[in-house]
């Protein structure tokens, strides 16, 4: 029987964007157009995890699901170039600049139900913009599916999923049954680069686009639990003392003396 995996992927501001390029306008974080968006790094690893399962089991379909108000198609199609089979975009102005992700969670959950035969949802452990780590947990609770987080390895054996879950000092093996939601961490390893065949193949696949009205969500804006008051760039108050010497080695020696002087060592 075919195993159907949904991978959730979010288009985000490139986290490598320099601090000075972050702009706050009308309570929204933007960057100048010279910085292209990327797929959240952990979500690329979620795609990688799904591809590894497909390589191990063979009969696997991977559908990538993304929710947003607008997409850079060449960016969001990257999972297809990596080897995913389908791409569904939940695209609607209603998803623009949401501080409270409740609506996004409802939309993704409805989409998973609409797809119908999903066995496994794999998500990045968190997104690099808000670092909430809420969406996969929300999907799991709304679907009433079990969840295993921060995976570095996923093994699907029949109806059972074994996950190596990263701990601060090692890892643990946890086990659950399908259908389930799993989040993956960077310890899984680097996502593969798309090869030429993948890139050509991805060009031919058109994403399916669903608007909020296609999803049958009952949602009122009064349901939100977070109201944004303001966004601010943090004020750094530290004054840096640069240690200089005749050469780099001398600077190293002076650093030790300076730290001793300040009774830090």
């Amino acid at each position: 029987m075919t195993l159907h995996i949904v991978v959730t992927a979010k288009q985000v501001v490139d986290p490598e964007t320099p601090t000075s390029a972050f702009l706050i306008e009308n309570n929204k974080v933007t960057t100048s157009t010279s910085f292209a968006p990327v797929i959240n790094g952990y979500d690329e690893q979620a795609v990688e995890a799904a591809l590894r399962i497909k390589e191990a089991l063979g009969d696997v379909v991977i559908t990538v699901l993304s929710c947003g108000s607008s997409f850079a198609l060449d960016v969001i199609k990257k999972p297809l170039a990596m080897g995913a089979d389908n791409l569904i975009l939940l695209q609607d102005n209603a998803f623009d600049n949401l501080i409270d992700p409740t609506l996004v969670i409802r939309a993704l959950t409805s989409a998973i139900q609409k797809i119908g035969d999903v066995d496994l949802v794999i998500s990045g452990r968190q997104a690099s913009d808000w670092d909430n780590a809420l969406v996969p947990m929300g999907i799991a609770e709304l679907l009433d599916w079990p969840v295993a987080t921060i995976a570095r390895k996923i093994d699907v054996i029949g109806n059972t999923v074994k996950v190596e879950r990263v701990l601060p000092d090692g890892y643990e093996i946890v086990e659950t049954t399908l259908p389930a939601v799993i989040t993956v961490s960077n310890e899984l390893g680097s996502p593969r680069y798309p090869n030429m065949r993948g890139i050509m193949g991805a060009r031919k696949i058109q994403p399916t686009i669903w608007e909020i009205n296609d999803l049958g969500i009952e949602y009122q804006s009064t349901e939100i639990a977070m109201e944004l008051i303001s966004l601010e760039k943090p004020i750094k108050s530290i004054e840096t003392e640069l240690i200089q010497g005749e050469d780099e080695a001398d600077a190293g020696r002076k650093l030790a003396l300076r730290l001793r002087e300040e009774r830090i060592i």
């Binding site: 750094k236 840096t240 020696r253």
Partner: peptide, 23 residues
């Protein structure tokens, strides 16, 4: 360097051995 109290701008391969020696 914007976040540090003390900074040394240099190659660690030259800075660290001297730092260790002085320590």
């Amino acid at each position: 360097f914007k976040e540090a109290r003390f900074g040394v701008k240099g190659d660690w391969e030259k800075v660290i051995p001297a730092f260790i020696e002085q320590l």
